[in-house]
Each structure stands twice: as structure tokens, then as C-alpha cells.
């Protein structure tokens, strides 16, 4: 995502750090050292006004997911925030993936659910709808 657009989302939320999910891909993104220079002309102004806006440092953190991994391995992910220091760490947890995959198959769910869990990413061509494209 465009860095300025990402910063705008955090600013619109009115926070210093925006935690999100949805993509199942854990990351910590720090946006810093930003500025925007503008030249403004309005009706009635004799000369354009030039200004520089200093942008605040902000963070976007995606917690990843504990199921349906899409970050390239089979581990469950989450993040831990230390509210005192502000440190954020991505945690990865191993578990018995084979057992969970077998449970998916035993429950009669589509094979692709187990395949996805075992490989850590969504393989669109293996989905039942071959026209499905996974966008992220």
C-alpha cells in the first residue's frame, strides 16, 4: 500500500499505532521522516503561498492470524505490544498442523482448506472456483 495513503488511514483513525488484520500477513510498518510541500493558489491571491507540512511518525501493525496462514509458513501468528516501551513483537507459534489438516478432511471440508493450512498460503488454482483470484 502507498506509504502516504497508509499514513492517512492512521491519521484518520486518530491514533499513533493502527492495529489491523484481514490479510493474514503479520508485519510492523513504521512511517517516519515525512513531509509534504505544497503551493496554494486561490482566487484573489496575488502570489501563491508555499508551505511544508511535517508528517508525524506513525505505525501500522498487522496481527497476522492464528488460522488460514498466508505468510508462507504454517505457524500461527499474533503480536504483543508493550504499552510502556511501545515495543511490538510478532510472535510465531508452532502446532500440530498435520493433526488439524486430518481433522479438516475427516469433517468432510474441501481438501483445499487442509492444503492451504499445510503450505501457508492461498493457492487460488486449487480452489474449487478456478476463476477465483486471491487479491492482497
Amino acid at each position: 500500500m502507498n506509504a502516504f495513503a497508509a499514513l492517512e488511514r492512521v491519521e484518520t483513525a486518530g491514533v499513533e499505532t493502527l492495529f489491523c488484520g484481514h490479510t493474514h500477513q503479520p508485519y510492523i510498518r513504521e512511517l517516519s521522516g515525512g513531509s509534504i510541500q505544497v503551493k496554494v493558489q486561490a482566487r484573489g491571491m496575488k502570489t501563491p503561498r508555499e508551505e511544508t507540512m511535517t508528517l508525524p511518525m506513525r505505525r501500522i501493525v498487522n496481527a497476522g492470524s492464528v488460522g488460514e496462514p498466508r505468510h508462507g509458513n504454517t505457524k500461527a501468528t499474533y503480536v504483543v505490544l508493550d504499552p510502556i516501551s511501545g515495543d511490538i513483537n510478532i510472535r510465531e507459534v508452532d502446532y500440530d498442523v498435520a493433526k488439524t489438516c486430518q481433522a479438516i478432511l475427516d469433517a468432510g471440508l474441501p481438501d483445499v482448506f487442509a492444503w492451504r493450512l499445510r503450505h501457508g498460503f492461498e493457492y487460488a488454482e486449487r480452489a474449487e472456483d478456478a476463476s477465483h483470484v486471491c487479491e492482497r
Partner: peptide, 13 residues
């Protein structure tokens, strides 16, 4: 918008 920049640092696995 006549100029400016930002640094984006991404940490992941």
C-alpha cells in the same frame, strides 16, 4: 503537491 518524502520501514517474518 510540489515535493516531499516519507520513509516506510516494514518488519515481518
Amino acid at each position: 503537491l510540489s515535493g516531499g518524502q516519507i520513509t516506510s520501514c516494514v518488519k515481518d517474518h
